[in-house]
Protein backbone atom coordinates (compact mmCIF):
# COMPACT_ATOMS: atom_id res chain seq x y z
CA UNK A 1 0.00 0.00 0.00
CA UNK A 2 1.42 3.35 -1.01
CA UNK A 3 1.34 6.38 1.26
CA UNK A 4 -1.46 7.86 -0.83
CA UNK A 5 -3.46 4.63 -0.60
CA UNK A 6 -2.83 4.53 3.14
CA UNK A 7 -4.24 8.03 3.46
CA UNK A 8 -7.27 7.05 1.38
CA UNK A 9 -7.81 4.04 3.61
CA UNK A 10 -7.56 6.29 6.66
CA UNK A 11 -10.23 8.59 5.22
CA UNK A 12 -12.43 5.62 4.39
CA UNK A 13 -12.09 4.26 7.94
CA UNK A 14 -13.06 7.61 9.37
CA UNK A 15 -16.00 7.83 7.01
CA UNK A 16 -17.17 4.41 8.18
CA UNK A 17 -16.97 5.46 11.84
CA UNK A 18 -18.85 8.67 11.07
CA UNK A 19 -21.53 6.84 9.08
CA UNK A 20 -21.93 4.19 11.76
CA UNK A 21 -22.31 6.76 14.52
CA UNK A 22 -24.72 8.97 12.63
CA UNK A 23 -26.77 6.07 11.28
CA UNK A 24 -27.12 4.44 14.70
CA UNK A 25 -27.98 7.78 16.29
CA UNK A 26 -30.72 8.30 13.72
CA UNK A 27 -32.24 4.96 14.75
CA UNK A 28 -31.63 4.86 18.48
CA UNK A 29 -31.13 8.44 19.61
CA UNK A 30 -29.47 8.74 23.01
CA UNK A 31 -29.80 4.99 23.51
CA UNK A 32 -26.87 4.74 21.06
CA UNK A 33 -24.73 5.43 24.12
CA UNK A 34 -25.58 1.92 25.27
CA UNK A 35 -23.06 0.59 22.77
CA UNK A 36 -20.21 2.48 24.45
CA UNK A 37 -19.72 -0.34 26.93
CA UNK A 38 -20.46 -3.29 24.65
CA UNK A 39 -18.21 -2.03 21.86
CA UNK A 40 -15.54 -1.18 24.41
CA UNK A 41 -15.77 -4.66 25.90
CA UNK A 42 -15.01 -6.22 22.51
CA UNK A 43 -12.22 -3.75 21.79
CA UNK A 44 -10.66 -4.42 25.18
CA UNK A 45 -10.77 -8.14 24.56
CA UNK A 46 -9.00 -7.76 21.20
CA UNK A 47 -6.41 -5.45 22.76
CA UNK A 48 -5.67 -7.89 25.55
CA UNK A 49 -5.99 -11.23 23.78
CA UNK A 50 -4.83 -10.51 20.26
CA UNK A 51 -2.52 -7.53 20.68
CA UNK A 52 -1.17 -8.66 24.06
CA UNK A 53 -1.67 -5.20 25.56
CA UNK A 54 -2.91 -5.21 29.16
CA UNK A 55 -5.02 -2.34 30.46
CA UNK A 56 -4.43 -2.55 34.17
CA UNK A 57 -4.74 -0.41 37.26
CA UNK A 58 -5.79 -0.75 40.85
CA UNK A 59 -7.69 2.55 40.91
CA UNK A 60 -9.59 4.59 38.30
CA UNK A 61 -6.85 7.20 37.94
CA UNK A 62 -4.14 4.64 37.31
CA UNK A 63 -6.40 2.80 34.90
CA UNK A 64 -7.10 5.95 32.91
CA UNK A 65 -3.40 6.84 32.90
CA UNK A 66 -2.60 3.44 31.40
CA UNK A 67 -5.28 3.90 28.74
CA UNK A 68 -3.93 7.36 27.92
CA UNK A 69 -0.37 6.07 27.65
CA UNK A 70 -1.49 3.20 25.45
CA UNK A 71 -3.24 5.41 22.91
CA UNK A 72 -0.98 8.45 23.09
CA UNK A 73 2.49 7.06 23.64
CA UNK A 74 2.23 3.63 22.02
CA UNK A 75 -0.26 4.23 19.23
CA UNK A 76 0.12 7.97 18.69
CA UNK A 77 -3.56 8.65 17.99
CA UNK A 78 -3.44 11.83 20.09
CA UNK A 79 -0.76 14.30 21.12
CA UNK A 80 -1.21 14.29 24.91
CA UNK A 81 -3.64 13.65 27.74
CA UNK A 82 -4.23 14.46 31.37
CA UNK A 83 -6.48 13.07 34.09
CA UNK A 84 -8.69 14.64 36.72
CA UNK A 85 -9.90 12.51 39.62
CA UNK A 86 -12.49 13.61 42.14
CA UNK A 87 -14.44 11.65 44.74
CA UNK A 88 -16.73 9.73 42.46
CA UNK A 89 -15.64 10.86 39.02
CA UNK A 90 -12.64 10.46 36.82
CA UNK A 91 -12.04 12.51 33.68
CA UNK A 92 -9.69 12.30 30.74
CA UNK A 93 -8.72 15.31 28.65
CA UNK A 94 -7.29 14.38 25.25
CA UNK A 95 -5.39 16.84 23.08
CA UNK A 96 -5.26 16.68 19.26
CA UNK A 97 -6.91 13.31 18.75
CA UNK A 98 -6.77 11.85 15.24
CA UNK A 99 -10.56 11.39 15.29
CA UNK A 100 -11.31 14.95 16.40
CA UNK A 101 -12.71 15.90 12.96
CA UNK A 102 -15.35 13.15 13.02
CA UNK A 103 -16.42 13.83 16.58
CA UNK A 104 -16.64 17.59 16.01
CA UNK A 105 -18.76 17.04 12.90
CA UNK A 106 -21.16 14.86 14.91
CA UNK A 107 -21.36 17.30 17.82
CA UNK A 108 -22.18 20.11 15.35
CA UNK A 109 -25.27 18.12 14.38
CA UNK A 110 -26.34 17.56 17.98
CA UNK A 111 -25.08 13.97 18.07
CA UNK A 112 -23.29 12.70 21.15
CA UNK A 113 -20.25 10.72 19.89
CA UNK A 114 -20.13 7.17 21.17
CA UNK A 115 -17.37 5.54 19.15
CA UNK A 116 -13.99 6.71 20.38
CA UNK A 117 -11.09 4.49 21.46
CA UNK A 118 -10.56 6.44 24.68
CA UNK A 119 -14.25 6.44 25.55
CA UNK A 120 -15.04 2.83 24.67
CA UNK A 121 -11.95 1.27 26.21
CA UNK A 122 -12.11 3.45 29.32
CA UNK A 123 -15.77 2.58 29.92
CA UNK A 124 -15.17 -1.15 29.47
CA UNK A 125 -12.00 -1.17 31.56
CA UNK A 126 -13.56 0.83 34.39
CA UNK A 127 -16.58 -1.45 34.51
CA UNK A 128 -14.43 -4.56 34.36
CA UNK A 129 -11.58 -3.62 36.68
CA UNK A 130 -13.35 -1.50 39.27
CA UNK A 131 -16.10 -4.06 39.79
CA UNK A 132 -18.81 -1.43 39.79
CA UNK A 133 -21.13 0.61 37.65
CA UNK A 134 -19.64 3.36 35.58
CA UNK A 135 -21.41 5.81 33.36
CA UNK A 136 -20.32 8.57 31.03
CA UNK A 137 -21.48 11.94 32.31
CA UNK A 138 -19.70 14.32 29.97
CA UNK A 139 -18.15 14.15 26.52
CA UNK A 140 -17.20 17.57 25.24
CA UNK A 141 -15.46 18.14 21.93
CA UNK A 142 -13.82 21.52 21.36
CA UNK A 143 -12.48 21.78 17.79
CA UNK A 144 -10.97 25.22 18.45
CA UNK A 145 -8.62 24.04 21.17
CA UNK A 146 -8.41 20.52 19.67
CA UNK A 147 -9.39 19.02 23.00
CA UNK A 148 -11.89 16.36 24.07
CA UNK A 149 -13.05 15.99 27.66
CA UNK A 150 -14.48 12.66 28.82
CA UNK A 151 -15.89 12.37 32.34
CA UNK A 152 -17.04 9.15 33.98
CA UNK A 153 -19.06 8.74 37.17
CA UNK A 154 -18.26 5.79 39.40
CA UNK A 155 -21.48 4.78 41.10
CA UNK A 156 -21.68 3.16 44.53
Amino acid sequence: MTEEQRQQWDRLSQMMIYGLEKGLWNMLGEASLAVVGTVGQEMLEVLEKEWGLQVEGSDPKELMANIGQLFVEKMGIAESFDIEKEDSTVALRVVKCHLMGIEAKLVEQGIQPFLCPFLNIAMAALRKRMNGATTITQFDVDPESHRCFLKFALLE
Binding site: M27, L28, G29, E30, A31, S32, A34, V35, G37, T38
Partner: peptide, 17 residues
Protein backbone atom coordinates in the same frame (compact mmCIF):
# COMPACT_ATOMS: atom_id res chain seq x y z
CA UNK B 1 -26.19 -8.32 32.23
CA UNK B 2 -24.23 -5.63 30.40
CA UNK B 3 -25.47 -6.94 27.08
CA UNK B 4 -29.05 -7.28 28.37
CA UNK B 5 -28.92 -3.66 29.52
CA UNK B 6 -27.54 -2.49 26.18
CA UNK B 7 -30.19 -4.42 24.24
CA UNK B 8 -32.97 -3.07 26.48
CA UNK B 9 -31.68 0.44 25.87
CA UNK B 10 -31.68 -0.25 22.14
CA UNK B 11 -35.29 -1.51 22.33
CA UNK B 12 -36.18 1.69 24.15
CA UNK B 13 -34.36 3.82 21.57
CA UNK B 14 -35.97 2.09 18.60
CA UNK B 15 -39.44 2.12 20.13
CA UNK B 16 -39.14 5.77 21.06
CA UNK B 17 -37.97 6.67 17.57
Amino acid sequence: ENLIAAVAAAIYGLSRR
